[in-house]
């Protein structure tokens, strides 16, 4: 095992291989379990996704672990901008987390009650939303340091906070799926309305995490500024 860089990577590899091998056990288990869908080819995609996903998950884990983390943050006087951004984003997330589910609930109710226009309205809004999201996605690749808003260090910290919050969102999603699996059981079903609700709650969790991380960085910077540029207020 000398070709593995660290102990953590070994653990990731072992868990991934175990996951991949466990996916094979689903075939005999599904034959023995009562009321389990015996239609084997309906489960094929799921089984193969487990095998493929285990490998891809291992790659992502190893790729993230093999990166060297460099945290070169020098204090400057722009802390308030970080704080301001944290609060602005947090309020936007809070408002979205309230307005979004309310709007979705209303539309679902209207659709169930037979209001056909609700479906077309949601379709239009969803199309516009997806197009806007795709444009943001394309712009994110081209985005350079917006000098007028943030400097390079702040931009780096904001990116870091966003990545941390997104990682928390993924962990939250995994937790929700695993909990649902154990609570409801493998043969149960989940109501459709719970998926957007889970998405909105995930958005709120991720937004809160981003807010907390940005506030943490802002506080650290404030401490550094209080201590002075040379690293001590004793002089």
């Amino acid at each position: 095992m000398s070709w593995i860089k660290s102990q953590k990577q070994r653990v990731v590899i072992i868990i991934s291989i175990a996951l991949i091998l466990c996916s094979f056990l689903l075939i005999p288990l599904s034959q023995k379990a009562e009321n389990f869908p015996h239609d084997i080819w309906s489960n094929l995609i799921f089984i193969m996704l487990m095998a493929g996903g285990g490998g891809i998950g291992a790659v992502i884990g190893l790729q993230m672990m093999s990166r060297r983390r460099i945290s070169s943050t020098t204090s400057n006087i722009h802390t308030n901008r970080l704080k301001k951004k944290a609060w602005t984003d947090f309020w936007v997330i809070c408002i979205s987390s309230v307005v979004g589910p309310l709007f979705y609930g209303f539309m679902t109710y209207a659709d169930i009650k037979g209001a056909q226009g609700a479906t077309y309205l949601i379709m239009c809004l969803a199309s516009v939303g997806l197009a806007a999201g795709f444009l943001i996605f394309l712009n994110a690749g081209k985005q350079k340091y917006p000098v007028h808003a943030f400097d390079e260090r702040e931009f780096h910290l904001i990116h870091k906070a966003i990545n941390i919050s997104n990682t928390i969102f993924i962990c939250y999603t995994l937790l929700v799926v695993t909990s649902a699996f154990y609570i409801i059981g493998g043969r149960g079903t989940v109501p459709m309305w719970s998926i957007p609700v889970a998405l909105f709650s995930g958005l709120f969790v991720a937004g809160t995490a981003q807010f907390l991380v940005l506030m943490h960085y802002a506080r650290e910077d404030e401490k550094d500024m209080d201590m002075g540029p040379v690293g001590g207020g004793n002089e």
């Binding site: 489960n43 169930i112 799926v177 079903t189 459709m192 309305w193």
Partner: peptide, 15 residues
């Protein structure tokens, strides 16, 4: 909106 989804689809979506 009033339908339901099998729970087995969720891990597949995650993968």
């Amino acid at each position: 909106p009033d339908g339901s989804i099998p729970i087995g689809a969720f891990p597949a979506l995650l993968y």
